[in-house]
Design a protein around this nucleic acid. Structure first.
Lengths: 208, 208, 208, 208
DNA sequence: CATGAATGAGGCTTCATTCAT
DNA sequence: GATGAATGAAGCCTCATTCAT
């Protein structure tokens, strides 16, 4: 039997999932609170028992989405073994894989970007994104630095730069895939990472 | 003395510039037509002499922005000389440079992405973006392929993949720079491109 | 206690009555939705819970008005007894009487005519009017034909023509009364019907 | 060669004709000053050289229309000869004929009615209509009274009532014809007038 | 707690009118 | 005189939010 608090959390989560689908499809402005209530099969008024406002709900969706993708990334990273090159390749692969699983929610990311660009919620979103990107770059840079320390990668490599570009490419390839159904982001990422690894390795042939 | 048609075009452009500033600052939904009229120092009704609707104006801003960035990219490409590696590095540099010049309008791009994700204008935006990315990838891939034909780059390189990642990294690094003032996208791009070029070159040392 | 559906119908009717008064006074274009809301003592937004648009509300007022006058006419007709002449005279009398009761809403009819003449709602109104006039003419013509079969009226009478003129005169006399306070449509109608009946009866003296 | 004043009057009339067509098609509210200017092949601003406002122009159209129909009616009346019955029948016929000629402008009448019902111009229109109907009734009543004096019509006839009904029937039959293409107002009017004349004559057979 | 009917501030858009050319 | 680009008041409608049930 669930405590009342757990009940509440469950319902909150339920609403967030419903809202995520609707926001993904129609965008923040295009979404009506009534839409969300309908999708969650609850009354419009009930939404306000769980969230203060539309913005609050949207931000809650953002937090949920961020937690999900972070969790996925952490799993990817923690499960790594082998050389830095291998681990980098596997990380790229598994990040892409896990994001592709949520592909239909990718439009949410675009909405979040836009929200951090110019909405009234700008600050909250922007701060969160800054931190998230920084964290992610740091993790990847650490991996690269490790590879440099092990002599896998050349000393002229700037870990932060390559990390930023790699992290960025994961976003950007999904973005391009979103615009174009015929675009294959997985293969593209694989090929690109292989080149980057070989580049970092100094041009030496790399076995993955 | 200007012809009436030229006058009209001038004023249209004037409104588009004003609108671009306001949309960039407040986003599509956050912007009121009255804001734009004020910024353009014209009456609210005058906007409708030049544009059918808020959406039409927004899309016109998009077209203008797209033309501007395209033009900048074309200049970069046409002015290239030297080896494929050099030309790639210069292209990257100049694309980043020219986009950075419009940095304060970068939020527009996020708005455009969001618009193609879920607004009612989705189709128009999405189609345009798909084409633009494809065109850009094609140009860059051609450059890489050239490098392969000249023996600069290894035969195992997949030009389309690297092109997509490069194009994507330009977007993505600007995005990260937008979130974080301390992030330097120019240097990052330079470092990344160098690695990619060395990766494509295989064993060959590359002079940039 | 009323069911929710009944409640809704009641409120709808309430709004229609309020709207009828305002439309009657200011006409379709002269009426603002806010006026109607004020008169109905509800919020502006509430109107849209019950009607899709101003036009929809206007047409609903029309339907209500048409139902009311139709109902009145049907009562008049069904309650008839006696000779065709008597019934015709009584019908005329009671139609005029019942329409005079709604005299202050007669301007609505003029608005409806105008709406069927040239508004965007033209088709809906026009079709309805065509049918209503046809139905009414048919009923009156049947009455006249009956009189002909009973030998009350001459054989050279064209029932449809007289019916159309009688039905028309009811409209037209109210119209003239509307323009001129000193004009007495009831007496006028009575005198006219008497003449028409005598005319249809040919040589026969008619007792009313 | 025309004087400047005549020039002005000509152009004024030209605008009125153009406006009449547009108002007839779209109604007062549905008509835009720009529409009228286009139809008159003049600039929007020019309209205001000739008319103070949209309402002024509309009323001018009304005056023109009223003058036209009055003139037609006067011609009908003045040309009459023969018995009162004959003259009445001919009057009816020629009024209907002349109005049918302007059939495509009949919607204007509905607009005028509506304008006198509830527009801001109500008073001007209403007063004019009151007078016009009164005048018309007076003319027809005089004709009937003449017939009574000559012994053509019975003494129990109330000339004003029959006149009102006849005048009304001309309006009303055109109205019904407007709603229903299959309705023949001319024949209907003929048949009705014949009955009315016979009724006034006391049921005696009347030769027309 | 849950609901959904009611609300009204807010924003897009229209169009009669003006006035500089 | 004629024009039509510019204007801004006005009005329809939406939708986040409230609150009585």
């Amino acid at each position: 039997m669930l405590s009342s608090e757990q009940q509440k959390q469950r319902k909150r989560a339920h609403i967030i999932h419903a809202a995520a689908r609707v926001f993904a499809e129609k965008g923040f402005s295009g979404t009506m609170m009534a839409d969300i209530a309908d999708h969650a099969r609850i009354g419009k008024g009930t939404l306000y028992e769980y969230f203060d406002s539309k913005e609050d709900l949207f931000f809650s969706v953002f937090e949920w989405y961020a937690r999900e993708t972070e969790a996925a990334a952490k799993v990817s990273i923690s499960a790594l073994g082998g050389s830095a090159s291998e681990r980098l390749a596997i990380l790229s692969e598994s990040v892409m894989q896990s994001w592709l699983k949520m592909k239909d929610l990718f439009t949410l990311v675009m909405e979040f970007w836009a929200a951090s660009a110019s909405s009234q919620m700008r600050k909250r979103f922007k701060g969160y994104f800054r931190q998230a990107y920084e964290d992610f770059r740091t993790v990847v840079a650490a991996l690269i630095r490790e590879g440099m320390q092990h002599g896998e990668f050349q000393e002229d490599v700037v870990p932060e730069s390559v990390a930023a570009a790699l992290v960025g490419s994961w976003d950007a390839l999904l973005l391009q895939a979103w615009f174009d159904d015929r675009f294959d982001p997985l293969t593209t990422a694989r090929n690109h990472v292989a080149i980057v690894i070989r580049g970092m390795a100094g041009g030496a042939r790399v076995e993955l």
